[in-house]
Design a protein around this nucleic acid. Structure first.
Length: 637
RNA sequence: GCCGAUGUAGCUCAGCCGGUAGAGCAACUGAUUCGUAAUCAGUAGGUCACCAGUUCGAAUCUGGUCAUCGGCUCCA
């Protein structure tokens, strides 16, 4: 029997049924033998050994493609698991997927794996690669698979098969050499196709991601189509580490986190504080432009108020408490309560709505020790927080306006971001109907703004669903910054109402939202984003004056005074060093403009700016330099 | 909180099988007065994270605490 096969360029071939996808591809393009690691048959990712029995479209999956690389890495994770079990008898396999920049495999093993063990594992992996074992797919009934893995003592695999949906009758396993693993596939044709890999780190990970379960050992690694790509990646990681905000924070003298003061508590140094001030000032203006009112609540509020809001029941383990005059106070982990009290301070009409209360509110949250991380995860932080109280019919427009605001703000800083919609979590308060209303309000607004988003089931706040905006740091870790949360519950609990056009009392809806999120975290991501080379409008120091010799110091002083007077953030480097040394120092501090002053400049009453990128702008009068800097600030560059 | 690793001068790091600490850079002082990424010389700087224990003797061995790093869980 013959079948018709269609390839990506629309070429058609008539081939005999029973031909494999790989053979079909080679018939179409000879080089597929070396470039393809898997195939797509009628849109489904399969092995090259997949047997074609009917008419189909067949496309190659090249190792250079995103999907091809994922297949390759998944296969490497199998080889690693195989090597681990060869070297460490009794290690049990669990799961081992490919991930964004590599792969991991989780094992249960009595001894802790060390970095020294990596050499042994990698050596065994190279042997497996050299042996060029084909990856062979087999299918079997699930009971048989359970027996097979139970017999091998692979309890985790047994549990995985047992928990498959009831309608799954057949499961697939893959063999290479004498190793076999439960796996959906696909895999590369044989282990010999692996050209470049490296094991990177070992860490603990809970079985099935649940902290109530046993902790397994996870080995992370990565793999690429060739050595060159692997080396490029490793170099990139090294470069990314140089952007780490913790390192730049010290090198640029922005902030410290000090043991003596306490973990997760940031101390801002003058330059870091200046950066923060510039961001906050910009933000205040942007909020006023958009019809927000600035407010401010106290740092501690009586515990009864936290009970009323639900925080005491649902958020207590993250809160700090303090006793004053036999009264218990909760140190605020969120800013909403004061804002509720402001709303309640008088009778509101529908004509007053929406009300938008904005506060750069400092909150404290008792985060678990293991999660603290530079500026990104701290125990005291300041949110650019706002609570919008509006009528249900105003919800859509308000959410859209916030999404626009976020987009505008991210554009100013040049951030790309990802959007997620998080739905009702297990522990939550409020009526089902309100949750549905709130969730669809968020969803509709996203759709109306043509924003693409992923859904994150069960990841909402305890009082309502939310839209999260995530930014990436230098090491590609995602951090939630902006968020919009829709809340019907707090207005209920605080009995907020407004008088409608009908003269009756109605319940307003509340939106919690932040734009930058936590200023600390945002600064952390910002430092990495710019690699410490802040744009002129944000640079703590915009200009540094470099004298060629001591005799230029008096003129240098005059220039410095003029810059300060004009509102330019200027520094001086008058120390007795050669110009090259000063340039290097200024360069390391990533200062936008280095103003060189020597005989020529002093004579002509000019400065000779050298930009951070090494470009020499040529001598110009100080006033011209001031105009230049002001223009950059104006343009937010 | 959990798993693993780490903690020595301001920073980066040496310091073996226990005999009370060393380099480079930075800092300070002096010389030099120099034109676009490091001038030379000298000086100073450490309760070896902290607390116990073992020992004649601990940076080194043991236990605990704190913190940091990489993950997991959680989260702005």
């Amino acid at each position: 029997m013959n079948i018709k096969v269609v390839f990506p360029d629309q070429q058609e071939r008539t081939l005999e049924a029973g031909v494999t996808a790989g053979q079909a591809l080679m018939d179409w393009q000879k080089e597929a033998q070396t470039t393809a690691v898997a195939a797509k048959v009628d849109g489904a990712l399969v092995d090259l050994s997949f047997v074609l029995t009917k008419d189909a479209t067949v496309a190659p999956i090249a190792v250079s493609s995103k999907e091809g690389l994922a297949v390759l890495r998944h296969s490497i994770s199998h080889v690693m698991a195989q090597a681990v079990q060869d070297v460490f008898k009794g290690a049990k396999v669990t799961i081992g997927p490919s991930i964004e920049d590599g792969f991991y495999y989780d094992f249960e093993y009595a001894e802790a794996f060390t970095l020294e063990d990596f050499e042994k594992i990698e050596k065994r992996m190279r042997e497996i690669v050299a042996a060029d074992y084909p990856f062979i797919r087999e299918e079997m009934p699930r009971d048989e698979a359970v027996r097979l893995f139970a017999q091998k003592g692979e309890d985790y695999k047994v549990e995985l098969i047992r928990d498959l949906p009831a309608d799954v009758d057949i499961v697939s396993i893959y063999r290479d050499g004498d190793y076999l693993d439960l796996c959906r596939g696909p895999h590369i044709p044989s282990t010999g196709r692996i050209k470049a890999f490296k094991l990177l780190s070992v860490a603990g990970a809970y079985w099935r991601g649940d902290e109530r379960n046993k902790m397994l050992q996870r080995i992370y690694g990565t793999g690429f189509a060739d050595e060159q790509a692997l080396n490029d990646y490793l170099t990139l990681i090294e470069e990314a580490k140089k952007r780490d905000h913790r390192r730049l924070g010290r090198e640029l003298d922005l902030f410290q986190v000090n043991d003596e003061a306490g973990a997760g508590l940031v101390i801002f140094h003058p330059k870091g504080m200046l950066l923060r001030y510039l961001i906050e000032e910009w933000e205040r203006k942007e909020h006023l432009k958009r019809g927000y009112d600035m407010v401010m609540g106290p740092q501690i509020l009586k515990v009864d108020l936290w009970k009323k809001s639900g925080h005491f029941d649902h958020y207590r383990e993250n809160m700090y408490f303090t006793e004053v005059d036999e009264q218990t106070y909760g140190i605020k982990p969120m800013n909403c309560l004061s804002h509720m009290l402001i709303y309640k301070s008088k009778i509101r009409s529908y004509r007053d709505l929406p009300l938008r209360y904005f506060e750069l509110g400092t909150v404290h949250r008792h985060e678990k020790t293991g999660v603290l991380h530079g500026l990104m995860r701290v125990r005291q932080f300041t949110q650019d927080d706002a609570h919008i109280l509006c009528m249900p019919e105003q919800l859509n427009a308000e959410i859209r306006a916030i999404a626009d605001f976020v987009n505008y703000a991210m554009g100013i800083f040049g951030f790309e971001y990802e959007v997620e919609l998080s739905t009702r979590p297990e522990h939550s308060i409020g009526a089902d109907a309100d949750w549905e209303l709130a969730t669809s309000a968020l969803e509709n607004a996203l759709r109306d703004n043509n924003i693409t988003y992923d859904v994150n089931e069960g990841d909402g706040a305890f009082y309502g669903p939310k839209i999260d905006f995530k930014l990436k740091d230098a090491l590609k870790r995602k951090w939630q910054c902006a968020t919009i949360q829709c809340d019907f519950t707090l207005p209920e609990r605080f009995d907020l109402n407004y008088i409608g056009a009908d003269g009756e009392k109605h319940r307003p809806v509340m939106l919690h939202r932040v734009i930058l999120g936590a200023i600390e975290r945002f600064m952390g991501v910002l430092i990495e984003h710019y690699a410490g080379a802040f744009p002129v409008w944000l640079a703590p120091t915009q200009c540094v004056i470099l004298t060629v010799t001591d005799k230029h110091i008096p003129y240098g002083r005059a220039v410095h005074a003029r810059l300060l007077e004009a509102g330019i953030r200027s520094e001086t480097m008058f120390d007795n060093e050669k110009l090259g040394y000063k340039i290097r120092q200024a360069q390391l501090q990533k200062i936008p403009y280095m103003l060189v002053i020597g005989d020529k400049e002093m004579e002509a009453q000019t400065v000779a700016p050298r930009a951070r990128d090494g470009q020499n702008l040529g001598a110009m009068p100080v006033e011209q330099l001031i105009a230049l800097v002001e223009d950059m600030c104006e343009k937010k560059k």
